[in-house]
Design a protein around this nucleic acid. Structure first.
Lengths: 181, 181
DNA sequence: CATGCAGTTCAAAACGGCTTGAACTATATG
DNA sequence: CATATAGTTCAAGCCGTTTTGAACTGCATG
């Protein structure tokens, strides 16, 4: 299955027992994948966040086992979303990267944009289908009612999504603020 | 992106203007894909639901442009979830299929099982990582705090998911009941 | 019990998203 | 300005998921 909302697929957890850092990093990768982002975006952020210092692309490449190009693109996304900051160290020709809290706020923002657009598009389609049906003499009243019920399905999905985002705002947002370093 | 929760990817909407039935069917396919199921599972259900009669596998195959094997597997899933019923018509050697309301209830049930397991697994991993860190003398207090904050992220995600499912229950569940034919 | 049709299974193909890595650009340094 | 190193781009490859279709099973019928 693929899943706009949530898709299964095995949680390929590389164990490496005893290495709590990579455990935590991978766990965040999984959460962020659940939220609809790339696993490695979460891993990069988590790694920077946990280390709490500005690291070079080379370090990310080595410690997270990513390719050069991959790091570049992942960083670009995270920067664009404002969860990672690029800093120039004095006396150093290369950039270093640092995690900004908080990740969840970003996730919410991005999802708000793209998922609501997606769902509301579906609703529009259903409304249009119903309107066409209403003008079609061969469409029975019962059929039109059924389309209307399908609209409710989309509406409720949208609403549930909104509540989901709001909950996460209060719940984690607040906690994150509280804990902010 | 792949996305446990929601993944983007273009909404390939086959237009076929004027055909409101396939418009509605595809729209439901998109909603259900958003909920993490296969697009075609949603399309089959929607088609049966809209037609409101028991249809043969051959009809599904033809009208939804699916393969023989595909129909068989899709029906099997939908039957297992209890949203499609298999009925034997008298004087007919083949099966016919009929939609049971409601789809959303099924979605919730399935998600409840698989997603909560997934998220709580992540939480467990983070807790374990923290415990290991706490025993590691080289791990600073600040690092451990950061892992704890990551746990909050997972906890809040779980909570938001719970609220999401509850909302969809009240909201659509109730509406569906109301409208049930 | 032979025939034909409905339905199932599953290996292979198609598909789509993610990552890689080589070529390229930009920037700092001597 | 030449060289080296850092960073970017993107076509190709990889990998997991979904779909296909041919072989197979089961069942009803003459």
């Amino acid at each position: 299955m693929k899943g706009y909302l949530w898709a299964p697929s095995a949680a390929t957890q590389v164990k490496e027992p005893g290495n709590w850092e990579s455990m935590a990093v991978d766990a965040v990768g999984n959460v962020i994948e659940f939220w609809g982002f790339k696993r490695n975006q979460g891993r990069v952020w988590a790694f920077l966040y946990l280390r709490d210092e500005a690291l070079s692309a080379a370090e990310l490449e080595r410690d997270l086992d990513l390719s050069k190009g991959g790091v570049s693109m992942l960083i670009r996304d995270l920067e664009r979303w404002g969860v990672v900051l690029r800093v120039r160290m004095q006396g150093d020709s290369s950039w270093r990267y640092r995690a900004e809290t908080d990740l969840l706020q970003m996730a919410r923002r991005v999802i708000e944009e793209r998922e609501f657009a997606f769902i509301s598009r579906i609703r529009t389609d259903l409304v249009e289908a119903r309107k066409l049906a209403e003008q079609d003499p061969s469409a029975t009243k019962a059929k039109i009612d059924r389309i209307r019920r399908m609209e409710l399905l989309a509406e409720a999905t949208e609403k549930a999504l909104a509540v989901f985002l709001k909950t996460s705002r209060f719940d984690v947002g607040a906690m994150f603020e509280l804990f902010r370093t």
